[in-house]
Write a protein that binds this DNA or RNA. Structure first.
Lengths: 160, 160
DNA sequence: TTGGGTGCAAACAGTTTGCAAATTC
DNA sequence: GAATTTGCAAACTGTTTGCACCCAA
């Protein structure tokens, strides 16, 4: 969609301004990393991004990519996720105030997003009942997508 | 509660039987690890357990504890959690079919449990709508408990 | 010119693994 | 006695850090 493209441009502009304000410099590495990152889009790992960046410039060090990722997370432009139990951290562009959670296929690893305002409401209520001021949450569903049959055995129960 | 004690005994018995069936042996290390694990109860890390076990027997190797933990997770007796983004894995006894999720205080780290059947229902519906067969989920809320004031700055948005 | 940024290699945390010796069945 | 389990140390994965050099502002 065109809206998404516009959104990306806005994000990039916003980022430039954030970096400017913080006195962070615009280097060729950072520009390249951002290009690739906006291209990949969603749910990539640091390794994914490193490989991708190195295809364009094999001299970029992984530390630079890690440092840039951390900077972007701290600037609020990226979100970190730790999906299924032993995968590494995955990153995702944090677009405006829009919020969604994820459902992940246990066979093929496909990740779909969902929004459910009712769940969010209930979360507020639960927090309130326990005397907490809710700030954020993580919520992932795991299952089998329509393309995948359940793995033969290994029944799984929910983990909260 | 007495019910909990009974439940522990049942769990232990169940475990013995599972181990028996799998041809796993009952060693002094495993018995000690189980004792301490049932004592600690919930939301402990591998390190917590290792320290605790070593207080009783300083010769137990950490590999043994890790191996035992993995065995217990695979037997379905323990659940693994990865709470806030950069903490290590935490373990919890998996009691029967009872299920709960967690809310974590961002200041003091306190963990409270909650159950919300409506949320579980909505999760089913969401999965169905996306063509997934739901198998499990992780769901954590983050906020400030009644004993803790919000940290001065650092506003946080939700992460799914 | 000067502070931030870079690549490299080493450090790091948490966890797993190879192996010879010890233990359980 | 055969097979499993152990402790140790080394390996491994994902990530961070120290440092000398480099470069954008």
């Amino acid at each position: 969609m065109a809206a998404e493209l516009r959104e990306r441009k806005r994000l990039r502009a916003e980022l430039e301004s954030v970096m400017g304000r913080k006195g962070l410099r615009s280097t060729s590495q950072r520009r390249l990393i951002l290009d690739r990152l906006f291209e990949i889009g969603e749910h990539f790992t640091a390794d994914d991004l490193i490989a991708d960046v190195r295809q364009a410039d094999s001299t970029v060090g992984s530390a630079t990519v890690y440092r840039t990722l951390r900077m972007l997370v701290e600037s609020g432009l990226l979100q970190e996720h730790r999906f299924a139990d032993h995968e590494g951290t995955r990153f995702e562009l944090h677009v405006g105030d829009k919020h969604h959670d994820h459902i992940i296929c246990m066979t093929c690893g496909k990740i779909r997003e969902f929004e459910e305002p009712l769940i969010e409401q209930l979360q507020e209520r639960v927090a309130e009942q326990l005397g907490f001021k809710l700030q954020s949450h993580t919520h992932q569903l795991y299952g089998y997508c329509s393309d995948c049959t359940p793995a033969p055995s290994k029944s799984r129960s929910s983990r909260g």
